[in-house]
Design a protein around this nucleic acid. Structure first.
Length: 588
DNA sequence: ATAGGGTTAG
């Protein structure tokens, strides 16, 4: 029987194999019949082992092939590439080069993909040069891998340039760019690109839509996300990935009801969709619900992984649930092992729960901190009033050849502002724009206005806001108003108050501040007007409260609250603290 | 048919 096997018959049988057992069965038959040693057969066997993902068998065969054709090389490369074994891909690629084997478009493509995974820009560019030298200058596969290489290495403008130069673009090239733009929060750019793609008659597939959903999460207007959801349903592009991404998009816009609805009606809930939901609750400040959901996840048989654990950690940080947070830290150490993302979450926990030295110790533990880790640590210094140290950490960061982003500057400027380092703040705000090409966002203006107005530089603060290209919200103007209030600057305060009233806030405290400001300047008609507005709106705000972790039990307290059982003792300690602070303020 | 884009998160 075996001797009648033709090459064609064997190929058909091998292609039908879906798992390594069926491949090895054919392998045995070939060995028994003695046909194995025909080079064409062993190469095809190798390709099949590679295709079903049995790397050890594929490698073994590869190593014993007497003569290795390009197809065998590409097959083994593909096996490693699919499993993201970057070092092996690059090792084999180098060996090909060394042995003078011709490299095809797919060999170059996989090697460049490996470089993108390792963030090795230099090596990737070198391989691209070789591809160009072999006549693949306009190869859509090679070029798409290059786009991804640039994007992953944070070189978006290089990626854009390469994309614009491409002579032919297919769905993957477009998707690479759309995804890259939405990942660096450039949602509008991603949506523009998607529209251009559609204009060229290309329909988005599931992967492209994942990029678009991410873009919808990054843009301000939630309506875009809603219409994208409709589009996905109409075009039958819903699967558990797109659904999870949609869920998270709704959560980012604060639409937890819709997020929950997507979760409950999705085709198949996975550990990833659970993670997305848990993180959605954490992002929206529902700390108790986050922790409850984590327990529910476990009881549904899903082992919590990093994402859910980090979200739970963030919930603890938000409400100061220090004891539970520390036990989650313990869980991470015992069960999850080293993870940069959770390391950053732990820094944040200790920062927000007041244990600066533990935050610093955690930072030291992270072997290769990425930008987000650095940002968290800079923020930690800022929260603890160490502006100078925050600045020197920032300088250290820039010396590491890591590009700071908008969050880095938000942390830095806030640190400088809270330490009253006015000149440094102004200096770095301008550097941010001119040298780092980061357009100031609302949070940056907020820091600057805070910094300037606390230093009494109200004119400068006002001018900064007037020249701002992005529209800033109520809180920034409130900050300018309270600065004016404290420094007796009537005209700027009045301008700020006007602006605030136009923005129509629904926070009672803000109206009270405006009213106090006008009262201080004896503008009684304004005060009366404000009273009217307040009465008309009938503003009722749920009173704000603080949470404190007492021996692992979370207690809430609010203004004038005397309901606690140890109220008298608490009050006497507060009195003592008050006296301490006053005498400390006198002596400094 | 061997390749390039991809779900959650600090």
């Amino acid at each position: 029987m075996q001797s009648s096997w033709s090459r064609y018959y064997l190929k058909t049988r091998l292609l039908a194999c879906r798992d390594e057992v069926s491949v090895s069965r054919i392998h045995c038959q070939l060995l028994v019949s003695g046909m194995f040693w025909f080079e064409t057969f062993s190469a095809q066997l190798l390709a099949s082992y590679a295709r079903v993902g049995d790397i050890p068998s594929a490698r073994q065969l590869f190593d014993m092939l007497p003569q290795r054709e390009i197809d065998s090389w590409n097959a083994i490369l593909a096996a490693y590439s699919r499993r993201n074994c970057q070092a092996e891909v690059l090792g084999l690629y180098e060996q090909m080069k060394l042995e003078g084997v011709r490299r095809s478009s797919s060999s170059f493509t996989m090697a460049i993909k490996a470089c993108a995974g390792l963030l090795d820009l230099e090596k990737g560019e070198e391989i691209r040069e070789c591809a160009v030298g072999s006549g693949y200058e306009d190869d859509v596969y090679v070029e798409s891998a290059v786009l991804n290489l640039y994007a992953k290495c944070g070189k978006m403008s290089e990626a854009m340039r390469a994309f614009d130069k491409m002579r032919r673009r297919d769905i993957v090239s477009w998707t690479t760019m759309i995804t890259a733009l939405s990942q660096c929060e450039r949602g509008e750019g991603a949506v523009d690109l998607y529209r251009r793609m559609r204009n060229e008659g290309i329909e988005g597939d599931r992967v492209a839509m994942l990029g678009i959903i991410k873009a919808c999460a990054a843009v301000g207007d939630p309506r875009l996300g809603l219409s994208t959801h409709g589009h996905l349903v109409r075009k039958d592009l819903m699967d558990s990935s797109t659904e999870t991404s949609l869920l998270s998009m709704y959560a980012k816009h604060g639409y937890m009801k819709q997020a929950l609805h997507v979760f409950e009606t999705m085709h198949r809930q996975t550990v990833i969709s659970w993670g997305a939901l848990v993180s959605g609750f954490a992002q929206n400040g529902y700390a108790a619900e986050t922790l409850e959901l984590l327990a529910k996840m476990v009881s549904n048989g899903f082992d919590p992984e990093v994402v859910s654990i980090v979200s739970a950690l963030s919930a603890c940080s938000q409400v100061g649930y220090f004891k539970l947070g520390k036990s989650i830290h313990g869980y991470i150490t015992r069960r999850l092992g080293y993870e940069r993302v959770s390391g950053t979450g732990i820094i944040d926990l200790y920062t927000k729960c007041g244990s600066f030295s533990s935050a610093r110790a955690q930072f030291e533990c992270i072997s290769s901190p990425d930008l987000v880790c650095w940002n968290a640590m800079i923020a930690a210094y800022g929260v603890h009033g160490q502006g100078k140290e925050a600045l020197s950490l920032f300088i250290q960061l820039t010396e590491q050849d890591i590009q700071p982003n908008h969050a880095t500057f938000a942390a830095l400027l806030s640190a400088l502002s809270h330490s009253g380092l006015v000149e440094e703040g102004q200096y770095w705000f301008h550097k941010m724009i001119s040298q780092f090409h980061i357009a100031p966002m609302e949070k940056h203006y907020a820091c600057m206005v805070d910094l300037l107005s606390r230093a009494g530089k109200l004119d400068e603060a006002h001018k900064l806001l007037q020249s701002a290209e992005t529209e800033v919200g109520i809180s920034v103007w409130v900050s300018l108003l309270s600065g004016s209030h404290n420094h007796g600057s009537f005209y700027i305060g009045e301008a700020a108050a006007e602006k605030i009233l136009k923005l129509n806030p629904d926070d009672l405290g803000i109206y009270a501040l405006i009213s106090n400001f006008f009262a201080a300047h004896r503008k009684w008609d304004q005060v009366a007007k404000l009273r009217n507005i307040m009465r008309q709106k009938g503003i009722k705000k749920a009173p704000s409260y603080s949470l404190v972790d007492v021996n692992g039990k979370l207690c809430a307290f609010l203004m004038g609250d005397e309901t606690h059982q140890d109220y008298e003792e608490i009050e006497s300690i507060l009195d003592q603290l008050d006296r301490h602070m006053k005498s400390a303020a006198m002596s400094s």
